[in-house]
């Protein structure tokens, strides 16, 4: 099932209230926020209302917020090789 990936690139400040309302309905509260919706005529119409503000792509699977954050997380760059057993005893 295909999904729309919608990212808010420009804010709706200074635009009619209807645009703000559509963004609120889509769940886009701030710039660079990303939401996923199934491809339906309703969502397509909503996107068309704010097409100047958002970036849209069609993807196969939606990502959750946690997954999106995990993709951005850098590598820790370390692992504990040996526990300091000698110091623990003191």
């Amino acid at each position: 099932m295909p999904y729309f990936r919608i990212t808010l690139l420009r804010s709706a400040i200074g635009l009619p209230t209807k645009s703000t309302g559509v963004l609120k309905a889509l769940g886009l509260r701030k710039r660079m926020a990303t939401v996923y919706y199934p491809v339906t005529p309703d969502v397509a119409g909503q996107i068309l209302r704010v097409k100047e503000l958002v970036d849209v792509a069609e993807v196969d699977e939606p990502l959750t917020r946690a997954e999106m954050k995990e993709r951005r997380r850098p590598d820790p760059g370390y692992f504990v090789e040996k526990r300091g057993g000698a110091l623990k005893k003191l």
Binding site: G77, Y78, V80, E81, K82, R83, G84, A86, L87, K88
Partner: peptide, 13 residues
Amino acid sequence: PRVQPGDILRLNR
């Protein structure tokens, strides 16, 4: 988190 003095870390990046 979860380290104590004396632990040896391996830095690999």
